[in-house]
């Protein structure tokens, strides 16, 4: 081996090592860092997560899933999920570029969720509440039969237990793949809110990024108190639809929580950090909860009747559809 060979060999080794190192760094960068959509800052993911998924530099609120929301909003370990046996089906045999059945399957695989909402009982600073938390990651948080049913059941549970109802929304609107059946969920959830109103039960909604369409036009905006999270986009019609209709571009803050505040549509604009304390304070301010027994009884009768008939109906409908096919 000449001295020249030895240098060459050393150089090759160094290059190989560097390449390996670079590859490793690249990989870990992808996992460790994220870029803020708003201020473009490179942020350590851990810093962001420790800050409730809010950009430490510009206070931009990242979209979060239901699991994180539950962690942040309720007392540790207090959330007990309910109605997990309510599962989606494909009543219309719907197919666009993909069948609805496949879409349901891949949504479940992607998110490890059964549907676009988690409902259950939880505690906020020790105060019991019935909660519904939507998840945008599951088919855009769209409301189909299951979402409507679970939210309605959560409201009925609130009535039965005489505890306040809290709904955290994140949804693109109604689920097209269930057509008119999903439209009916708007009516169903709103009818349930009507019962909460009659009984005098406190109902708080928290509108988060994004809340649109059929969800905005039903239970989301029916809260006794409406809280919107900072920066969330909230509206009825989508931005693109409006632009196409009126043929002009829209202001950049159009349909943000701040915009809604300006136009008197929400009670409270809250940062994610203050959200729990805000709700906790509101719960205390509305105590004691006085609920009309009569309404509770009426709702109980209907919901008992419903559970049996809904199942029977599902079966007979399935049969009918099969016969047609």
């Amino acid at each position: 081996m000449t001295i020249k060979d030895w240098f060459n060999k050393r150089k090759e080794l160094q290059i190989a090592h560097r390449e390996l190192e670079e590859a490793q760094i690249d990989d870990s960068i992808g996992k460790l860092w994220i870029k803020c959509y708003n201020c473009n800052a490179q942020l350590l993911k851990k810093d962001v997560e420790d800050n409730l998924d809010v950009c430490p530099q510009c206070n931009y609120h990242f979209r979060i899933n239901s699991e994180k929301r539950i962690q942040q909003l309720f007392d540790e370990g207090s959330f007990k999920e309910m109605f997990t046996d309510v599962l989606p089906t494909d009543p219309l045999n719907f197919e666009d570029t993909e069948t609805y059945k496949n879409r349901l399957k891949s949504a479940k695989e992607k998110t490890n969720l059964n549907e676009a909402v988690k409902c259950g009982e939880a505690k906020i600073d020790g105060e019991r509440v019935s909660a519904a938390v939507m998840d945008f990651e599951y088919m855009g948080g769209s409301m189909g039969s299951v979402v409507g049913e679970k939210i309605t059941r959560a409201m009925e549970y609130a009535l039965q237990e005489k505890i306040p109802m809290i709904a955290v929304t994140a949804s693109g609107g109604a689920r097209m793949q269930e057509s008119a059946l999903s439209l009916m969920q708007m009516a169903k959830t709103s009818c349930a809110v009507a019962r909460l109103n009659e009984a005098g039960l406190l109902y708080i909604t928290v509108l988060t990024e994004p809340t649109f369409g059929g969800v905005t036009a039903s239970f989301a905006t029916l809260g006794d108190i409406i809280i919107a999270e900072q920066g969330a986009r909230i509206g009825f019609a989508g931005r693109r639809v409006i632009e196409q209709t009126i043929k002009q571009s829209l202001p950049s803050d159009f349909q943000t929580a701040e915009y809604l505040m300006k136009y008197g549509q929400i009670d409270i604009l809250s940062t994610r950090k203050d959200l729990k304390a805000t709700i906790s304070n509101l719960l205390k301010l509305h105590k004691p909860y006085v609920v009309k027994e009569e309404t509770v009884k009426k709702v109980k009768e209907v919901s008992e009747k419903k559970t049996t008939t809904a199942k029977k109906k599902t079966v007979s409908k399935k049969k009918k559809v099969k016969v047609e096919a």
Binding site: P88, T89, G144, E178, A187
Partner: peptide
């Protein structure tokens, strides 16, 4: 209240 179809 009874509108909608869910899996059995």
């Amino acid at each position: 209240r009874t509108k909608g179809v869910i899996a059995k």
